[in-house]
Amino acid sequence: MNIQQLLSELEQKQHIESGQKQLLSQYEQQKPVSLFGFLRMLLYVSLSAFVTGAGVLIYQNIDTLGHTVLMALLAMLTAACFVYVFKKGESFSFGKVVHSSSFVEVVLLLGCLLFLALEGYAQYQYGLFGTRYGLAVFLPALFFLFLAYRFDHQGVLSLGLTALASWVGLTATPDQVLVKNDFSDPAVIQTALAFGLLVVALSWLLEKRGIKRHFSYTYLLVAGTLYLVACLGGMFTMDAWQAVFALLLGIGCWYFFQNAREESSLLFLLISVLFGYIGFTYLLFTNLPAEIGVFLGSLYFMLSAGGVIWFFLNFKKLLRKPSPQSHESLQ
């Protein structure tokens, strides 16, 4: 069926009138193609390419004549980014801020990333922070957190949180979480647990006080996921504490689950179910006698996975909240 046939059908069934039909037909024929997704993607990919390339450039051209010029240019560009956002950005508010200029968001991110590259260089070349390496990540973390709140930017907030994680010795970069952090090391597990708990508790407090409520999403995504991975790491490697880690994992999953309902976030629902399932299954198989055999084990996987599927198909009914509006948005 094409659009003309549909319009005739709707007219025939008296849902629309003939004048409307013409209007709709005209609209459908002349409807412009939206480049929203394409241009946003181009913008972010280009930004990544520029910052990554600039980062390499800084180190490759050390000791050459153009180096100082290059550094000066990059420093000026960084400063220009911050001047731009302070000039064009909306003023601070405890609620969600939508900037009238659509470039504030991306220019701020560019400024922050360039700042990071320059700061790393200054530490390398001139030893800006001497041997106080913690300060080299703690200061940008504070700076980014300030900017994130000032300009309502969740991307910069995640940068700030990643820097903060780095300050306590953890890596929160998505593709490096499992590579760089040794989750069999009790010290890393404890740090990640404490970091996750503290940051999530802080976000909970801020949310309760009505300060940038929508930021809780990023807090939980970055710090909460680290916490859950640490719980699994603890379960897998520290047998004596297995029950404690299982309990902590359960609490974490429950918290994600609650947030999935409140934030209408299906990603949190997925994270909660995935981590919960892995933890529960591990607990079951390490504590059951090996004699249960392959057959019963497979039966467990078949039925439990079936159960999870049933849950995903019916979660809307199960998660029904008193407010019908929020329920509607969970789709």
């Binding site: 990544s48 910069v156 890596t171 998505p174």
Partner: peptide, 8 residues
């Protein structure tokens, strides 16, 4: 944002 920062 996190990835680009991490890849610098």
């Amino acid at each position: 944002a996190m990835q680009v920062a991490g890849d610098l």
